[in-house]
């Protein structure tokens, strides 16, 4: 699971790439957890490089969102591919995780 990361004055932007399915969701979780620090003031997950996510991947996003929600750290995802957006809508994840159209929007609006 490739995962790029960039920190800019407290905003942690994480950009995974590839598929997230039942065969690599544990790696995805480990990589994401390692990429998030307790003192991040905001975390944005740029999903533009992900074209496939199954319930195994949703589970990881839920756990990460709950962890960040527990510490009141603003968290959002952005740039969902149509296929990922469909999975988000069906599962209701667009109601529990903030979704922005683009990374620029997320950076400008997430608070």
């Amino acid at each position: 699971m490739e995962l790029a990361q960039e920190r800019d004055s407290g905003t942690n932007v994480i950009s995974p790439a590839g598929r997230v399915d039942g065969s690599n969701s544990a790696d995805f979780h480990e990589a994401l957890a390692a990429a998030i620090a307790d003192d991040d003031s905001r975390v944005i997950l740029d999903m533009g490089g992900i074209d496939y996510i199954s319930s195994a991947g949703l589970r990881v996003l839920l756990l990460v969102a709950q962890r960040l929600g527990g510490s009141s750290t603003p968290f959002a995802v952005c740039s969902l591919a149509a296929s990922v957006d469909e999975v988000f809508r069906i599962s209701g994840f667009n109601q529990i995780i903030t979704v922005y159209g683009t990374l620029d929007e997320a950076k400008a609006q997430l608070a």
Binding site: A65, Q66, G69, I97
Partner: peptide
């Protein structure tokens, strides 16, 4: 359900 009350069970078949 709100974020902290959501669980993942059954979501795969729901999809």
């Amino acid at each position: 359900l709100p974020l902290q009350e959501r669980s993942i069970g059954g979501l795969g078949l729901h999809l």
